[in-house]
Design a binder for these strands. Structure first.
Lengths: 263, 263
DNA sequence: GCAGTAGTGCGTATGTCATACGCAGAAGAC
DNA sequence: GTCTTCTGCGTATGACATACGCACTACTGC
């Protein structure tokens, strides 16, 4: 009498309350434990905790079901009593990593400042959990913490006068920016770690590489860039974030003005 | 006499001309064939072509060394005579997917228009090769086509009066935006394909899910959004792109003005 | 108390991957 | 003609996710 595509087997876990993705259901704290069989020797929190610990220490790639199980001193397959698939574990890990957003600035603060605080908080949280950037997105924010972040993002635009459609677009734009920024940082850091070079060294290498291949005729702008020595700066990751956010906010401000005039 | 970290084995391929990452070296067309041993029965173009064909038809995940080899009617391991590791194949696939940027608008066109054309071209090209968005980034653009795109992006700001540092930041910002936009689209499309739902259906489902869990007290902004029926619109992916780009360009324009005044 | 039953942990197996290693044969260099 | 340097490729190896089924446990209804 199992509903869903796959009947039988370990997929058919207890306490399903709806047709939601199991991970979402779990994250919202549904799924009551029917007090039948043996007491579970494990719980989701411990599993997710162990997985997060591994990810923090050795990166997301080190998180395998076997590894997590070993960490907990149980067998690999026992994890599947708590988690339908690895994707589900990923979702839960991400949820744990993001946590709830910090309290917003006092009401009355100008929207630009509030939005800045939100974006910065989002970046800091993401940056502290770089591994989480590697988790493939599987849909719009649907877990409690993600929704809370979205809520706070939307609320940050309260004083802007923007309509709901604009607000959601703005929030998606800004969070996409943050995600991309941090994700790119993570990728570069990973590449450098693999190559065993320092950030400065890789930048110099990169400059040399470009210099070697970019002839001034086909690539005048790049050549100029090299000659200007732009690639010799310290490439502060904070700088690119601040730069991008500033542009974004200026652009949003222009929208706010436009809508204010129009409506 | 092998240089490099790993001596011996198949890593030690012929024709190495420098200490560059092998993939980069290949992409720039270095690596002369020393006319010794048997004539190679394969070439990189055929390998990359087959890999791209698989990725187009079945997604990046379907691209395994074994699968590519089968496509070409050779054994898995023979590929490793042409490619040091799968990552290298990825880089070459991406290079093939992006191709060269289309010709820019006529000189004299305002920078905003040129930059728009560039961003749009980048998006279109990326969108036509969604699978390529799944390839992990391993560093700043270092292959010929990537550098060509960068060149054209930088050149698009010729009429803006921005300095070199600003230009590179702007280009990184815009290309990051495009990448994120298309990548998110790809993720959502993949998730929907896996769930077997249409885009409209998933949006409705998402709305229902939010409605179910977001109580109006904890999540007033989200609740308002739902009540406003914003999630019932068609969620045109073009719209979000256009919206974001417009904000970005407005923000960049503000910078141009500021620098123009200052310098 | 005592069945019945739904859960439990987990051993084992399957199938997929990337890739190390080494051999046999080919073809240009001397 | 021999030597060297390639080639293709068969055969491991060691991950990994996860299907399946067994043995055992602790509630539920009687």
């Amino acid at each position: 009498m199992a509903q869903g595509k796959q009947a039988g087997g370990s997929t058919d876990r207890p306490g399903r309350a709806s047709d939601l993705p199991a991970s979402v259901e779990v994250a919202w704290g549904l799924r009551e434990r029917p007090g039948k069989g043996p007491r579970p020797g494990l719980d989701l929190d411990r599993i997710v905790g162990a997985a997060v610990r591994i990810a923090e220490a050795e990166g997301l790639a080190a998180v395998s079901m076997g590894r997590v199980a070993k960490e907990l001193g149980v067998s690999t397959m026992s994890l599947y009593r708590y988690v339908a698939a690895k994707d589900e574990l990923y979702v839960l890990m991400q949820e744990a990593a993001m946590g709830l957003p910090p309290a917003p600035p006092a009401p009355g603060t100008p929207w630009r400042e509030v939005l800045t605080a939100w974006a910065t908080a989002l970046r800091d949280r993401s940056r502290r959990n770089l591994w989480a950037m590697r988790i493939p997105v599987d849909g719009p924010p649907a877990t409690p913490h993600s929704v809370a972040w979205m809520e706070q993002g939307l609320a940050s635009l309260d004083g802007s006068g923007l309509g709901d459609g604009d607000r959601i677009s703005v929030i998606m734009l800004v969070s996409g920016f943050v995600r991309n920024e941090v994700g790119t940082m993570a990728d570069l850091a990973a590449a450098q770690a693999k190559a065993g070079t320092t950030p400065e060294e890789s930048l110099v290498r990169y400059g040399r590489l470009l210099a070697r291949f970019t002839d001034p005729v086909r690539f005048p702008a790049v050549t100029r860039l090299l000659e200007a020595g732009v690639l010799e700066g310290p490439d502060d990751p904070d700088y690119e974030f601040a730069f991008g956010l500033e542009r974004l906010l200026d652009g949003i401000e222009a929208l706010v003005r436009k809508r204010g005039v129009a409506g």
